[in-house]
Amino acid sequence: MNSIEQEDENVFREQLVALLPRLRRFALFLTSDMTEADDLVQSACERALSRRLQWQPGSRLDSWMFSIIHHLMIDETRTMRRRKTHIPLEEGRFIATAMNGMKKLEAKLRLKQVAMAMQHLTDNDRLVISLVCIDGMSYKDAANTLQVPVGTVMSRLARARKKLYGLVHQRQGSSE
């Protein structure tokens, strides 16, 4: 390997390290379990490194990595022949900011409601919500990541958000 290739590889690894927190969040959203999420991210990193030259410099590395995680998730689901139905047990680690008292209680309640509602969405709905509402991707970038038209992203997203909203408020109503 010449020095330019070595430098390219080093830059690639640095970019991947910087992406790890977002990749873990994305995988956590898909798996609802931090250990499984980390396993998924690790497999995705190994695959990305072994196929590093397939990635075109200048294109979005995050989209490529999300796409790899997505495909690994599909493969795993096919292999395991099961769908994750559990919700996060360690609730505290999903709440970003330090909270106390009533606020913390509300946040825990919201987490539980959202997490349970998410179980009722399809994989495609969860995926598009994850990319746009959680990772903040534009519709266009989400479409590139999922390799579908922007219109498909919009229709899936609108449907998923309406469903999520309905499920969360339905639970709120029943718990009140």
Binding site: R13, L16, V17, L20, P21, R22, R24, R25, L28, F29, M34, A37, D38, V41, Q42, C45, E46, L49, R93, F94, I95, A96, T97, A107, R110, L111, V114, A115, I129, C133, I134, L164, V168
Partner: peptide, 23 residues
């Protein structure tokens, strides 16, 4: 309602095994 709920991984340290894999 989704904002912040799944942001834990952004705040905490990345596990060593992931860093080791990438590096």
């Amino acid at each position: 309602m989704l904002a912040g709920v799944y942001d834990g991984p952004l705040q905490e340290e990345v596990p060593g095994r992931l860093l080791k894999t990438v590096q």
